[in-house]
Design a protein around this nucleic acid. Structure first.
Lengths: 271, 271
DNA sequence: GCGAGCCTATTAGTCCTACTATATGGTCAG
DNA sequence: CTGACCATATAGTAGGACTAATAGGCTCGC
């Protein structure tokens, strides 16, 4: 009886005390009825799964800034997890600036400007539901600021490894197309390689966030229209300029690339 | 019948480590050595204080990427806190990309590129000790990319409130100087107001990080030399351009401002 | 001798329960 | 009306017990 697939959250396999809780949910001892709340699929560790759920709920607007969550006792009980696991999830959200907890006041959702929108997890939560058009626009604008500058720096500082990474990624983009998951990953790798090639730790930190944006918006474009435009030539132009150490050309090529992507995204979102 | 705790002793009132006495830890062998470490001053809540301590230790190079921390049982015991509080601190660090925990492997410090360097807390930890010159350079480079672009956008989009915030901040900078804490706060507020005036959520998120950099580096400059240069005229030029909706001038003025700040910082760091 | 696979020891993960600290809001004395 | 104080709700901390995952050693078959 060791292997209990995904169903049971309770650890105690021995029969729980019969009357210790009213338990509206039929605490599945052996039936894997996920009707209530899976809660495990969202992440491997339990507190991570809870953080994911809360995070997507907040980013999805289910809880708005200023709202107060149910008390930790009630909420953890409602989820069927220990208060401990729930608290650790809250710590994660707190660390990302989404909520704030104080005794007697409870746990409240912070105003948007406190959110760490560029945190990879937060971005993933933001794109878990329908992406907010306003947010996508903001992120593209940020890309339009960061990436051309990064391309310029990359043209000045790239080393052999940087170029290899970029070439590999571009080749992978050619092989698979952006219609495939592998292709989108390659696209993200390409942009990531450029950020790395700038040899700037602060920029590299943004890579995770920008990579997420690249990936999600690309997927979104694909879903909306057929194959918008072939993005390979634009990418190749950026690569060539960086390989040639032509900083102004690299910056300009990257700007063109992003403008095109923004244009396609705008069309597919009707904005 | 596993939990038969009925006979548990009713929490003896004899407090084990009472208040004023710092409770000389019997065995300060492992990770914490001097018994007189308050551990509460670093943050209001205990797990926050632990996170601060660990974060500064990691950012300060005390633990290097790949290192494994002592086991949670040992470490929490060495700190004299419950494993619970310690675990919550670890969750915070995990959320910021500093460490990763897995059973049997323990808690390991992640490679630098996984760190959320732009997280305000992480930046604070980075500047808690001697700032790494390389990191400061990276952050200034990022400022040089972000802030001129933000100033350009601000010139196009600023509203009445934005201008008021900027004017107030500049006035406060004039009143107090950068030699005072209030003056540095005003400096940060000025830059923050510009980021806000760009009306871009993603940029606003960077405001917290950039604000921290502004503040810390300014303080550092002050400590190193007397009064380097009067930065007010440069700031005023930026404000004027934004007020006049002159986007190119705003961008250029901001670029000049940052170049000057970078120059001063470089001189004071000998880099 | 050597590799596949079981075994074990270690460590994080989860749960439970009880208690403390903090902040709000209402109450009562002055 | 005002201020101090108490009641209450909620997060914070503690410590103990059990579970799950897994690296590394050990056994055993080949």
């Amino acid at each position: 009886m060791r292997r209990r697939k995904g169903a049971a959250i309770r650890h105690s396999v021995t029969a729980p005390p019969p009357e210790d809780l009213p338990a509206p949910d039929p605490d599945p001892s052996l039936d894997s009825e996920p009707g209530a709340r899976p809660l495990r699929d969202t992440g491997r560790r339990l507190h991570g799964a809870i953080a994911n759920r809360l995070g997507t709920a907040i980013l999805g607007g289910e809880y708005k800034p200023g709202d107060t969550l149910s008390s930790q006792v009630d909420f953890s009980e409602a989820l069927g997890v220990s208060r401990n696991a729930f608290r650790e999830a809250v710590q994660v959200l707190t660390a990302k600036g989404l909520v704030e907890s104080r005794p007697k006041l409870g746990t409240r959702v912070l105003p948007r400007e406190r959110w760490n929108l560029l945190d990879p997890d937060v971005l993933a939560w933001a794109f878990a539901g329908e992406p907010d058009a306003q947010l996508v626009r903001s992120l593209f604008e940020l890309r339009g600021i960061i990436e051309p500058a990064a391309a310029r720096l990359a043209a000045e500082r790239r080393d052999r490894d940087d170029l290899r990474r970029m070439r590999d990624a571009l080749a992978a983009m050619r092989r698979h197309t952006l219609a495939t998951e592998a292709g989108r990953t390659a696209d993200r790798d390409f942009h990531d390689a450029i950020l790395r090639a700038a040899h700037n730790d602060a920029l590299m930190t943004l890579s995770a966030g920008i990579g997420a944006v690249v990936r999600w918006t690309t997927q979104f474009k694909q879903r909306a229209r057929g194959l918008p435009r072939n993005p390979i030539p634009e990418h190749a132009r950026v690569l060539d300029a960086i390989a040639a150490s032509d900083a102004p050309a690299a910056e300009e090529a990257m700007r063109a690339l992003i403008d095109q992507a923004l244009d396609d995204t705008r069309n597919s979102m009707g904005g």
